[in-house]
Design a protein around this nucleic acid. Structure first.
Lengths: 234, 234
DNA sequence: TATTTATTTGTACGTATGTATAATTTAATG
DNA sequence: CATTAAATTATACATACGTACAAATAAATA
């Protein structure tokens, strides 16, 4: 939205299209990242309506208007927060899918691999990534069943989701395609639940600390792979 | 909170403890229900922070202060909304569990029956109940991964959840108990996702209308039963 | 009917909200 | 250095928020 059409001549010194004045995107890219980090954390902690633009500005060490200057109205800021890491996530999933397709050749990709490849980037990022990824994971969990959330998720995640669903349906030829979509939705919900860090699993199992997400991930893969396979049995 | 200790002598005319003045809970019980209905819908549509007390009052056809008069501050109203139908839900699940225990005798309750008995009351209410149940289901979906939501869910749902988990662990003696908790969480997340009516399954499958929740329910039972059973295989 | 309490209304307070406008500072240019 | 545009600051606006207080009304009693 605020991206500039860079001039075509690449050598900066001899740039003939170069207009006078301070160029865009110099130092401000850091500022934008700082705003997104702050917004990510606050939206994750308090939700979309619970976090104010003022909170974000204060957390980023800026004045209020700097937020809307860089991102426009609140909803666009929210979208930008989701989009930033969604693009990374989609890149990882796309690469994994390409590899899997090459490995499988003409055959269908194994269910277990599809489950693993879709859930792994998210769970790995949420558990091994920096605090930003943890905040992002919590935020995505909150978004899951809200109108605004699903709208934004649709924009940034549905295309790749459909690719995985297509492969799942191919691997589960005997199953009702709608059941496969149902299974995919269940898998995503479980993945988000693991990373949301709500503390409910601990409360239900009597544990005092959160289970390492890798263990949860392995359980998820086994559980949902078996679930998918059960859909083929009429 | 605002319930009164009814006098012990049951015959109203000869009530010796009866104090003068207008008695509590007469017409106001309808008002309370009307407030809860309005709050339920608004919280479901806009979330806790997105729905204001003024909105609730207007939807119920009352002045602002009537809300806090009956329910205290906003968070207690929210809790009351969740609690009302949580009690019904817990009653149904408790009755189903008792029946299942009697049927099973000394043996473990079958996994499929536990999955069915836990998810069925919610999905049936959300699909066949009145609009209030549909709103409630959407609200519970929104709550699932938020801090305030999990706090309230813990208060009203965790006891019965632990009972079902105990039975699941008994039926899955070979499985890691923590994996079983993980599976239970996945089942709940899927159940909420089905009833949240976000439109995402339709978007992912190309359907134009929502799938009948009964079909989704049958798929959920098959999927998650198989998932649980897979946890016993080392 | 007079009295007592439950319930509802009307109004107000202090603060927080998203957004917009104008002025200022910063960083590059020729 | 003068100039141009980006980036930041400062301030303001109109509205919405949760909560509280005082008054009025309603429904039962003796």
């Amino acid at each position: 939205m605020r991206q500039q059409l860079r001039s075509l001549t690449l050598i900066q010194g001899s740039d003939i299209n170069r207009k006078p004045g301070r160029p865009k995107g110099g130092k401000s890219e850091q500022t934008r990242e700082r705003i997104l980090d702050a917004a990510e954390q606050l939206f994750a902690d308090r939700g979309y309506d619970g976090a104010s633009i003022r909170d974000v500005a204060a957390a980023a060490g800026l004045q209020i208007h700097s937020i809307s200057y860089h991102f426009g109205p609140k909803e666009q800021l929210f979208d930008a927060v989701v989009a930033r890491r969604a693009d990374i996530m989609t890149g990882l999933r796309g690469a994994a899918l390409e590899t899997a397709r090459q490995q499988a050749g003409a055959a269908a990709i194994p269910i277990k691999q599809l489950v693993r490849d879709y859930a792994s980037p998210f769970i790995q990022s949420a558990s091994h990534g920096d605090v930003g990824w943890r905040n992002y994971a919590a935020l995505m969990g909150r978004l899951a069943n809200s109108p605004l959330g699903t709208e934004i998720i649709a924009r940034h995640y549905d295309d790749m989701a459909r690719e995985y669903i297509t492969e799942l349906q191919r691997a589960l030829a005997g199953a009702d395609p709608e059941d496969v979509v149902e299974g995919f939705s269940a898998m995503v919900a479980a993945m988000l639940g693991i990373c949301a860090a709500t503390g409910r699993p601990e409360r239900l199992s009597g544990r005092n600390a959160q289970r390492p997400p890798e263990e949860s991930f392995e359980a998820l893969v086994r559980f949902h792979t078996a679930g998918f396979l059960a859909l083929t049995i009429a």
